[in-house]
Amino acid sequence: MSNASMRITLTVWRQASADAGGGFETYDVPGVSPDMSFLEMLDVVNERLMHDGKEPIAFDHDCREGICGACGFMINGQAHGPERATATCQLHMRKFRDGDHLTIEPWRAAGFPLVKDLIVDRTAFDRIIESGGYVSVGTGGAPDGNLIPIPKPVADAAMDAAACIGCGACVAACPNGAAQLFTSAKMQHLNLLPQGQAERWDRTVNMVESMETYFGSCTNHRECEAACPKSISIDFIALMNKDYAKAQLKQRRLIGQTFP
C-alpha cells in the first residue's frame, strides 16, 4: 500500500435532467489515494462539493464489488475505463498516474436516456429480459440435484454467458449503440441448457425483436467484448445469429402446419 497522494483533474458531464442542457465541468482533485476505487474518488469529490453547498455528481452504484451492474460511465473514451474486464467500481486509482486528466461522460444511446449527470435509465434492458430471458418451470417437489445431465463444456458456456451483470457497457462502447452482447448473453445462457429448450425459438425471436426496438445493429467491431467487465465473448452473438435464422425457419414450418 502506498500513502502517496495523487492529484488529478476531473472533467465531468453535468446535466440536471434529461431536458436540461448539459456540459462538462472540470474539477481539481488533490489528495486522491491510489488505493481508492474510482467511485470512492467520486465520493470524495462529492463530499467536497456538498461541503461547498454545490450539487454532488449523480452516478449509479450499488454493490461496489463488480457484481450488480449498477455502476459505469465512460472514462477517457472507454466504457468502465482503461482496465479490461473491470467494472468502474473495481477500477482503482492506482491505474492512473499523478497529474492525469480524466474525462467522464454517461453512456450515450437512444435506449439509455439520460436521467441526471452520469446516470442513464437502463429500463430498455428489462424490456429485453421480459420478452424472453426466463424459463417456465413447473415447481413441484424439489427435484434431485443433477437430475438432468448436462455436459461440462455446455454448463461452462452457459455459466460464461450468465456472468453478464447488465451494466450496459457493451451498448455504450459499441460504435452503433447495439445491444447484441447483452441480449445474446441473456439468451444463450438459457438456449444452451436443456431447461431452455421448450421456449428456445420463441425466446430467440422475441428477445431479438425487443432488442432491435431500442438499440442499433451489430457490425462486429468487437468493442463490446473489450469493454465488458465480465469478458462476455462475442461467440454468443454468433450463436444468437444462428438461432435467430433457425427460429425464423421453424416459424415458417409452424405457420405451414397451422394454415395448410
Binding site: 473514451g77 450515450r108 444511446a109 447495439a178
Partner: peptide, 14 residues
C-alpha cells in the same frame, strides 16, 4: 440508435 454522440473523444480498443 445514438442520437447524441459522445462529447468527449472516444478511445477505441478493438
Amino acid at each position: 440508435a445514438r442520437p447524441q454522440q459522445y462529447q468527449s473523444r472516444r478511445d477505441y480498443v478493438a
